[in-house]
Every structure is written in C-alpha cells, then in structure tokens.
C-alpha cells in the first residue's frame, strides 16, 4: 500500500514536472537535439551533476545494493535505435503519457509503438541474441 501511494505521488509529480520542463513538446525536444536551445541540455546536465552528488551521499550513508550497468552487446545498438525513435516521435517512454495528459491524442500511436516495440524485443532477443540486456531491473 505504501508502495502504491509512493508510486502514485511520484507519478503525478513526474508528469507535472515533465510537462512544465517541456519534454512533452516535440518542438522543445527538437530544439534540444539541434542545439537551437540549450535549456533542456543544460537542465539535464545539471540534473546529472546534482544526482551524482545525491547518489554518492546515499551510497555512503545507506550502502545500497545497486545493480551495476555494464556495457553489453545491446548497449550501443539499442541506444542508437532509441535515439532515432526519440528524435522522430519526440518521446522517450514516459513522455508518450505526458503527451496524452497534455491532450495530444496522436501520442496514442507513440504509446502503442513503445509497448509493441518493447514486447517485440523479447522473442527477437530469445531467437537471435545471446546476451543479457538486463533491462532496468529494479535494484
């Protein structure tokens, strides 16, 4: 129950923030990737710096068991495919939901594509690939 309430609260906060940040706007994402505006790039970079400090403090205090994220055969190829997709549809996974909340009903196609692409990967991985992609398992 505590888990559900925390997840609900964080989802609401995350959706609100993403909308205000402008990640739900295809135009803003496009301007970030074409360097027409440095606002999102700087915001993301500074967030990583804050997190580096935050996580190092948490690591010292709590000694958490965080799963390592090593490079594997899917890292580069998967990252490249994701980058192309993000630039085309203007959405990383959670953004499709932000766009729906914003009233962009076309984003239903994006969401459908993300779910289909994710589901499609499992049988293709089992059939053709022989590596552990360790998809964001909860630490």
């Amino acid at each position: 129950m505590k888990d559900s309430i925390g997840t609900l609260a964080l989802g609401l906060l995350f959706g609100f923030c993403l909308h205000r940040i402008g990640f739900g706007s295809w135009d803003e994402v496009h301007k970030m990737f074409t360097f027409a505006s440095l606002r999102l790039t700087l915001g993301f970079g500074l967030a990583v710096v804050i997190l580096a400090i935050g996580f190092s403090i948490i690591a010292k205090l709590q000694h958490p068991k965080w799963a390592p994220r090593p490079i594997h055969k899917g890292t580069l190829a998967g990252g490249l495919l994701f980058g192309v997709g993000w630039a085309v549809c203007g959405a990383c996974p959670s953004i499709a939901l932000v766009q729906l909340g914003d009233g962009q009903w076309l984003a239903l196609w994006t969401l459908l594509g993300i779910v289909a692409g994710n589901a499609l990967y499992a049988p293709i991985h089992a059939r053709f690939f022989q590596f552990d992609s360790g998809t964001c398992s909860p630490d």
Binding site: G78, G79, L81, F82, V84, G85, V88, L120, Y121, C136
Partner: peptide, 21 residues
C-alpha cells in the same frame, strides 16, 4: 510516423537496458 518512432523507442530502450531515466 509516431507508431514507427515508438517502435524504435520501445525496442531500443529494452535492447540497451534502459532509457533517459
């Protein structure tokens, strides 16, 4: 276009083992 882009996002993030977050 959006469905195609979404496919790449879903497939790519799972292959790479993670996304922007």
């Amino acid at each position: 276009i959006l469905f195609g882009g979404g496919l790449l996002v879903g497939f790519g993030t799972r292959m790479a083992g993670g996304c922007t977050s």
